[in-house]
Design a binder for these strands. Structure first.
Lengths: 162, 162
DNA sequence: TATTGTTATACTCTATAACTATA
DNA sequence: TATAGTTATAGAGTATAACAATA
């Protein structure tokens, strides 16, 4: 087991701080790595000042043109009232549009503008570079392994709830 | 590649929503899995109403008895003013104590109470069960693989910053 | 009556800066 | 002058409930 950051058991006064039992949990390592990744991505896209959830919303709309705000909310795991704010933001930027549905006039059908599509492509490029940087030390095989392990671990809990 | 949640490309009206390009990024899978994990853990410990950062702080104090608030802050990646609130909370619960340092009277030396130690043990048991549940489908070998891959990917960015 | 989107409200989380007491 | 801890404030992020329009 790798213990790079591990110091002596009670080295509170020394330079290194021990992680103790935390170091043996996947949850901790998952969070730690994901934090690094999202900080890197936020830094790479800082000039746009993207609010949280905005990038994901953009990507889901791209993959599901015409999706309603309600379904989008469920998919990103946010309340529909939050999605209203995200859509307000996206429309203000000119990256997405609400179109009243002809079939069900309560709904909005969501879509990207050309500008939004260009931005999304650009954001995915930033994400590509970020991930390339962070996962530098892993071989393509190992990255694929990681994908599969994460996917299998998650699929158990895909209960469609919330 | 596993595509369990993948629907037809533009199936906005069908039951399944496509994740589109997101599905090909480790950042997305990391976040998704980590969300599940932390929701499960929060649910398992809901009766205590633990504020965010409290569990981690407790674990770091256990592993580094006598640590200062400043070092704790750096280790958990929060501002020292946040750590004040967490310590207030921990003391109110009777789980941790601040003791004025004799060597440097500006500092507090942090430590767990017996009650805090018992609680932490109990919380780690909950975490054990949570992880056991979530990573049910992975073999011990695969779990160890996951540990190592996550650890190696992270260590690149262990720059001690912030 | 139920659902989609909206608004209002409040609560948590976090960052920043100013303050105090010690060094 | 610098550091450890504290306080106050403000800004995000999020959840909840009430509401209007439509089904």
């Amino acid at each position: 087991m790798t213990t790079r950051r591990r110091a002596a058991p009670d080295a509170a006064t020394a330079e290194q701080v021990s992680l103790g039992r935390l170091d043996h949990y996947l949850g901790f390592r998952l969070r730690r790595l994901q934090n690094q990744l999202s900080k890197q991505f936020a830094a790479a896209t800082a000039l746009h000042g993207l609010r949280s959830g905005l990038f994901t919303a953009l990507a889901i709309i791209e993959a599901n043109p015409g999706i309603s705000q309600n379904r989008l909310a469920r998919e990103v795991g946010l309340d529909k009232s939050l999605v209203v704010l995200i859509l307000d933001d996206l429309e203000k930027r000119g990256w997405a549009e609400r179109r009243r549905s002809a079939a069900d006039r309560r709904r909005h059908e969501l879509g990207l503008t050309d500008e939004g599509q260009r931005m999304l492509n650009q954001l995915f490029e930033s994400l590509d570079e970020t991930e390339k940087g962070v996962f530098d030390r892993l071989s393509p095989d190992e990255i694929e392994q990681l994908h599969q392990l994460l996917d299998r671990a998650y699929s158990l809990w895909d209960d469609g709830a919330k």
